[in-house]
Write a protein that binds this DNA or RNA. Structure first.
Length: 423
DNA sequence: ATTCCGTGAACGCTCACATG
DNA sequence: CATGTGAGCGTTCACGGAAT
C-alpha cells in the first residue's frame, strides 16, 4: 500500500502513481501508451474519495520530453495539494480562499469577539467614539485577565459574568454607565452576527448619577480676565472673543479655513462631523465679533486654518484640547480672585490668599450664552440658534431653510453689551 | 529653562432621536 | 410628551518631545 499524504484542512491523498510504472526507465515502446498520473483524494466532508487522473504529458512524443513533463506535472500537483490546499472536489485552493478569519462567530472568546465587533463599528462611528470603545475593551480585557475569565466564549457569556467583570473594574458611576453603553454598541453587533442571543448590557442596571453644577465666573471677573488676556495673550483673547460670540464648539472653530468665511455676509461655514455624514452648516458672525474675524482674515492665506498653532492662522489644525490647556496655564494656574479683583498669583502679598479660579473655559460659554438670551428678549432661544443644531428633516425643507435664513439675518444685527467698556 | 504641542487614558456633559 | 439611549464632543492628568 502506498503511503497516504496528509494535506491542509483535514484532507489527504494517496501517493500519486504514474502509469506506466516503469515510466522513468522504460524504452521507446512506452510512447505507444497513454500515460497518466493517478491518485485518490480524501476529504472528510465527502463520503467517497475522488479519483484524480492527469494526462497532460501525452502531447510530448519525445521520450525525454514526456518524462520531464510527467515529472513537472507530478511535482506541480503535489505542490498544489500541499501548499495551496488544492481540493479536487471543489476545484479551489483552500489556502487561498479568503478565510473568515475576521468574521464574528460564536466560538470566539469574549475579547476577540469584542475586538472584531469594535472593528465593524469603524465605518459608522466617530474617530473619538471608536477610540473610546477601544480603550474600554482594553480595560475590560485587563479585568477579565485578572479574574481568569479570558477564555469564556462569547456564546456562553453570562450576564452574571459580565457583571462580575464590570464590578471588578471599580469604575465610577458615570464611567460605569458609559462603559455599559460602549459594550452595548458591541453587543448590538454581536447579536446581529448570532454570537449571542441578547444584548447582555440591557440587563445590567444603570447607576444613578448625581449631576454636578459647573463652576463659573462672575461676569465682572470674566471682564477682568478678558482685559488681562488682551494685554498678555492677544491671540488667545481673540480666540476667546470669537468663541464666545459664536456659540460654536472649539472643535468646529479650529477646523475653519479662511475660504470658509464670508465677511461681507457675516457668515462662515463649518462642517459638523456626525457619523458618516459630514454636514455643512452656515453660522453667522455677530457684529461684536466682526473685528476679530476681519483681523484674522487679513492675516491668513487662502488655504490657512484661522486658528492654527498659537491660535494664529496657519496651515495645520490643532487639537481642541489646546484651548483648555491655555486656559489652565494662563488663567487657572496663574490668576486668583483677591478683593473681588482678578490678579496674578505672584502679585499677592505674603499673607494674602486669593480665591483660585476654578471655572473651566467651556463653562464660560454657557455663561455667555445665558447673557445672549437675556439681552435679546425678542429672540427667544438665540443661543441654540447660534449653535445651529440642525436635524436632517429641517435641512430638507425649503420653507425651513428660508426661515433659518431670516433668523440668521436678524442675528447679524444683534448687539450684545458683553465685555464692552461703557464710557 | 520655559512654553507649546501630541497622545493615551479616564472621566463628564448634553443634544437628538427612539421609545413607550 | 417624558424618559432612556447613543453618539459626539468636552475636560483632566500624565508623559514626553520639539521649539524657542
Amino acid at each position: 500500500m502506498r503511503k497516504k499524504i496528509l494535506l491542509p484542512n483535514g484532507c489527504s491523498c494517496s501517493t500519486p502513481s504514474v502509469y506506466p510504472s516503469n515510466w522513468k526507465i522504460g524504452g521507446k515502446s512506452l510512447l505507444k501508451k497513454k500515460w497518466y498520473i493517478n491518485y485518490y483524494f480524501y476529504d472528510p466532508e465527502f463520503p467517497k474519495p475522488k479519483q484524480v487522473v492527469i494526462k497532460g504529458m501525452n502531447e510530448y512524443s519525445n521520450l525525454e520530453d514526456r518524462r520531464n513533463a510527467t515529472k513537472l506535472i507530478y511535482e506541480d500537483e503535489l505542490k498544489a495539494l500541499k501548499e495551496l490546499g488544492y481540493n479536487p472536489f471543489t476545484k479551489r485552493n483552500f489556502c487561498e480562499i479568503e478565510k473568515p478569519k475576521n468574521e464574528l462567530h460564536k466560538d470566539l472568546n469574549i475579547i476577540e469577539a469584542f475586538r472584531l465587533s469594535h472593528d465593524k463599528l469603524k465605518k459608522s462611528v466617530s474617530k473619538d467614539y471608536f477610540n473610546e470603545i477601544r480603550i474600554a475593551i482594553n480595560r475590560f480585557e485587563k479585568g477579565a485577565r485578572e479574574l481568569r475569565m479570558l477564555n469564556i466564549k462569547i456564546k456562553d457569556f453570562k450576564r452574571s459574568e459580565l457583571k462580575t467583570i464590570l464590578e471588578y473594574l471599580n469604575l465610577t458611576d458615570h464611567y460605569f454607565n458609559k462603559f455599559r453603553s460602549y459594550l452595548s454598541s458591541l453587543f448590538n453587533e454581536l447579536v446581529e452576527y448570532d454570537c449571542c442571543e441578547h444584548n447582555l448590557t440591557r440587563d445590567i442596571r444603570k447607576r444613578k448619577i448625581i449631576k454636578k453644577v459647573r463652576e463659573t465666573l462672575e461676569i465682572e471677573h470674566l471682564k477682568q480676565i478678558a482685559e488681562y488676556l488682551k494685554e498678555e495673550q492677544p491671540y488667545f483673547y481673540r480666540y476667546m472673543m470669537i468663541f464666545f460670540y459664536s456659540g460654536a464648539r472649539s472643535s468646529e472653530l479650529l477646523r475653519i479655513k479662511k475660504c470658509d468665511v464670508n465677511i461681507e455676509k457675516q457668515e462662515y461655514k463649518v462642517i459638523i462631523e456626525k457619523g458618516r455624514q459630514h454636514t455643512e452648516t452656515i453660522k453667522i458672525i455677530l457684529p461684536d465679533a466682526l473685528p476679530f474675524w476681519i483681523e484674522l482674515i487679513n492675516q491668513a492665506k487662502t488655504n490657512d486654518y484661522l486658528f492654527s498653532i498659537k491660535l494664529k492662522p496657519g496651515s495645520t489644525t490643532i487639537d481642541p484640547v489646546q484651548i483648555t490647556r491655555r486656559w489652565n496655564y494662563h488663567i487657572k494656574s496663574k490668576m486668583v480672585i483677591h478683593n473681588n479683583q482678578i490678579i496674578e498669583k505672584s502679585n499677592l502679598k505674603k499673607d494674602e490668599k486669593g480665591i483660585p479660579v476654578t471655572a473651566d473655559f467651556y463653562s464660560l460659554k454657557h455663561l455667555f450664552l445665558d447673557k445672549v438670551d437675556a439681552s435679546s428678549e425678542n429672540y427667544e432661544n438665540i443661543s441654540s440658534r447660534l449653535a445651529s443644531h440642525t436635524t436632517p428633516n429641517i435641512t430638507n425643507s425649503v420653507y425651513l431653510i428660508n426661515k433659518k435664513k431670516r433668523e440668521r439675518e436678524k442675528l447679524k444685527n444683534l448687539k450684545i453689551d458683553f465685555l464692552e467698556e461703557r464710557a
